[in-house]
């Protein structure tokens, strides 16, 4: 059964030169969807949604890590401090991934980390400072 996972990959200037995506497709039969890609003199970052058999995903992850590329599952990139969140809704309209929505009954703001694409738009939109970037 094929599964979906989202990862944030951080490249060094050296590892940014590797054809990682091509290898994922050819060698592991992974279907990648690039959600964000940024490269500069310090290296780069890639937000990837990958789809494949559980086994192949594990092998692909091992391959990526062997290349010295840091890898983090995306649902842990941004987190919410539940106590600091006041359920205002400032984050709801600025999230391009629609990871936040308001429960129509309670009006509480629900955060679906699985939808998060690590764009970080919510970080500075959150005035109670409930949305936090996980450092790595």
């Amino acid at each position: 059964m094929s599964i979906h996972r989202k990862y944030l990959l951080a490249f060094t200037p050296e590892s940014a030169k590797l054809p990682v995506i091509a290898v994922l497709v050819q060698k592991f039969g992974i279907i990648p969807n690039i959600m964000q890609a940024r490269v500069n003199e310090k290296g780069g970052r890639l937000v990837l949604d990958i789809e494949g058999e559980k086994d192949s995903l594990e092998k692909a992850k091992a391959y990526i890590q062997e290349q010295g590329i840091e890898m983090k599952e995306l649902d842990k990139h941004v987190s919410r401090d539940e106590w600091r969140c006041i359920h205002c809704g400032a984050c709801v309209s600025i999230c391009p991934a629609e990871a936040f929505h308001v429960d129509p009954a309670t009006y509480e703001v629900l955060f679906n980390a699985e939808k998060c694409i690590a764009c970080e738009a919510c970080i500075n939109a959150c005035s109670p400072k409930a949305m936090k970037l996980e450092l790595w």
């Binding site: 809704g89 709801v92 600025i94």
Partner: peptide, 25 residues
């Protein structure tokens, strides 16, 4: 506003409340 979007100038704008309705409740 509370439906989550409003329409002006033929555009649909997503809305955000800045005050907390659950806390008001």
């Amino acid at each position: 506003l509370r439906t989550g979007s409003i329409e002006i100038f033929d555009r649909r704008l997503k809305t955000s409340s800045l005050s907390s309705y659950p806390k008001a409740r």
